[in-house]
């Protein structure tokens, strides 16, 4: 069982290396995070906060946009693409269960994502430390950011598998993936903010809004990271919400894990119903 899962995962990683996917994702993360770290260096001295911590705060916002996109692009083709090419017919005629196949894909993609995040963000952290701008506490923040970014990525990988097993053509799956990104990462926030602005002291703001933030992995990720940094006074925006929350912000982490479990189970059920 494990050897079959590792075989599928290994193939995904190999393909990721060959078609330069890993390189591209790493490069994008490195370039954006370096830009943020260097351009965002001005306020560090005046606030007297560790520069690594400030960078982590900006990178958390970057992750919310980039990591789901990278994850969806890795995952949208995973199942329907193989149906289209005919390779799934061959793979499923081998003694491998569909769940094993799915776990193998998820493991491979997670490792690809992990590599890109560790190297991409790690470069930035290394550079800041090298410039003498980091402390141990800042490095812990960085490690937390990378770990939760991976978890956020897995949420969207799992969502990508659900979309990929619901569609028959990879073109349709790609469109669905982009739509999912747009809704969860951009429009969801806008809708929540709109509702808040319309009625800042109503029932929505006090008892619906905080849970609505938990439901969306992108918001849950941001909430957890910014509150964990204690950086709400630095970044403002959504982080200011944390003081008024009716629950411990660490619930946001639980919400991410629950999202992964639900989405992966859903795709495991859906992939059984596919006729390759």
């Amino acid at each position: 069982m494990f050897s079959r899962i590792l075989t599928v995962a290994g193939q995904e990683i190999r393909i990721g290396i060959r078609n330069r996917w890993i390189l591209l994702a790493t490069l994008i993360l490195a370039v954006f995070s370096l830009a943020l770290a260097l351009l965002g260096s001005a306020p560090a001295g005046t606030l007297g906060v560790d520069r690594l911590t400030i960078t982590v705060a900006s990178l958390a916002s970057l992750s919310v946009y980039l990591v789901p996109l990278i994850a969806l692009l890795l995952a949208f083709d995973a199942i329907c693409g193989e149906v289209e090419k005919g390779t799934l017919l061959m793979t499923f005629s081998c003694p491998i269960s569909r769940t094993e196949f799915l776990i193998g894909k998820a493991l491979g993609h997670t490792l690809v994502l992990t590599f890109a995040l560790v190297i991409g963000y790690g470069l930035t952290a290394g550079l800041l430390v090298g410039m003498g701008a980091g402390s141990t506490a800042g490095l812990t923040d960085f490690a937390r950011l990378i770990a939760t970014s991976i978890l956020l990525g897995v949420c969207f990988l799992a969502l990508g598998y659900v979309l990929s097993s619901l569609t028959r053509q990879s073109g349709t799956a790609a469109a669905a993936a982009i739509a999912a990104w747009l809704v969860l990462v951009v429009l969801y926030d806008l809708a929540l903010l709109g509702a808040l602005v319309a009625n800042p002291s109503g029932v929505f703001a006090s008892s619906v809004f905080p849970y609505a933030v938990l439901l969306n992995p992108a918001d849950a990720f941001r909430l957890f990271n910014l509150t964990a940094l204690g950086a709400s006074e630095l970044v403002g925006g959504m982080a200011g919400v944390s003081e008024t929350l009716p629950f411990d912000p660490r619930f946001a982490l639980v919400s991410l894990i629950v999202f992964v479990a639900v989405a992966l189970s859903a795709s495991a059920v859906l992939i059984r119903r596919i006729t390759p």
């Binding site: 090419k85 390779t87 061959m90």
Partner: peptide, 17 residues
């Protein structure tokens, strides 16, 4: 599945491998 094998019509293997 352990005892049988199958070659589908028109397979496209991953070109990068």
């Amino acid at each position: 599945r352990s005892g049988a094998s199958y070659l589908p019509e028109a397979v496209a293997f991953p070109g990068a491998l």
